[in-house]
């Protein structure tokens, strides 16, 4: 049985216990998948799982209130958000059912677009897409183009430590055994630049932000929604003025609010319509947290995130010499 069929069977089996199961379905064209909300067995047929299933579906878990029982299909990285949400009591273990998957990596459609553009082809004209022998095979403008996954894979997948769902009630397929160490080499390389160079870089990037809040809305851990302090008047931290300061400030709030919680699923960056490398900002904080507290977010449901804790004497920061 294929992994997809195994998953479907598991959902059919558990559906009677659940109000809804969130998975992926076919999107508006052959390169896009879209969240699928399964409430009946008939919906299960529409389920898809392949490297185009980029969305982190755990984002939807906090939108149902505490009465509903929800099933969610997760890749390795997505499952860490579920763990984080559980730790923060934003969802409850008896109200979620996790369908875990192994994942070898997803495609970065930005890379696909650029790879096709390099061949003078337009991603918008892709009529069919499939996967064969580690290649993404697309039919575009009458030609069949093979793009090796290694070239169009999301960056986060290349350094992934958690290919398999870290928490699950059902697991389809075979766990992947190899894993990258993720040493934050990308952040370290960025830090090589001078402060001025980095400031200049971010200034240029942030200038493009249109404050559409897509990044925040895609974030599984930005649960404040209408009351996000990036938008509210009471308290009124950021004005609605359109200026670099305000955009930058909003992004700094977003990043610091995720420090020690962000699981680096990269949804903010993927959602951004103007391609701001938001994950780099989040990973910078991830690296700091790892170095300071020896902690990676969303890996242990029983752990207490270090910044959400009050300790007179931190285990890893010995200020007092006790």
């Amino acid at each position: 049985m294929s992994l997809q069929d195994e998953l479907k069977a598991q959902i059919v089996k558990r559906l009677p216990e659940l109000d809804v199961v969130i998975g992926w379905g076919q999107g508006y064209d052959s390169l896009h998948r879209t969240p699928l909300f399964i409430t009946s067995e008939a919906d299960v047929d529409k389920l898809v799982f392949d490297p185009l299933c980029v969305h982190n579906l755990s984002t939807y878990l906090t939108r149902y209130g505490s009465a509903k029982r929800i099933g969610v299909v997760v890749k390795g990285c997505d499952s860490r958000s579920v763990v984080e949400l559980l730790q923060e009591k934003l969802i409850h273990r008896d109200k979620v059912m996790v369908f875990g998957l192994p994942c070898e990596g997803v495609a970065d459609l930005g890379k696909v677009k650029r790879a096709l553009a390099a061949k003078d082809l337009d991603m918008g004209r892709v009529r069919a897409a499939s996967f064969a022998d580690g290649d993404l095979v697309v039919t575009v403008s009458g030609q069949e183009i093979r793009l090796p996954m290694a070239e169009v894979q999301a960056d986060k997948c290349g350094r992934c430590r958690y290919h398999n769902a870290v928490i699950h009630d059902e697991f389809a397929g075979q766990p992947i055994t190899e894993a990258a160490p993720d040493t934050y080499a990308d952040v370290a390389a960025f830090e090589e630049q001078t402060l001025e160079e980095r400031m200049e870089f971010w200034r240029e990037q942030m200038e493009r932000c249109v404050r559409c809040y897509a990044c925040r809305n895609a974030c599984p851990l930005c649960v404040c929604r209408d009351y996000c302090i990036g938008q509210s008047r009471e308290p009124n931290w950021v004005s609605q003025r359109d200026g670099l300061e305000e955009k930058f400030f909003f992004q700094m709030i977003h990043a610091t609010h995720l420090a020690g919680r962000c699981t680096e699923c990269g949804e903010c960056e993927r959602a951004c319509p103007v391609d701001i490398p938001l994950l780099l900002l989040k990973r910078k904080l991830g690296k700091e947290i790892l170095e300071l507290f020896d902690y990676r977010a969303g890996t242990d449901p029983d752990a207490k995130p270090p910044l959400l804790n009050f300790k007179v004497q931190e285990d890893t920061i010995n200020e007092r010499g006790w």
Partner: peptide
């Protein structure tokens, strides 16, 4: 505004925050 995450209760050094239920929400 409160989403009932109770992070405030975890960090409060005086144990001054408790959980309540308001219309079914924590």
């Amino acid at each position: 505004r409160c989403v009932g995450c109770m992070k405030c209760a975890i960090t409060c050094p005086f144990g001054a925050i408790k959980e309540t239920e308001v219309r079914g929400e924590i």
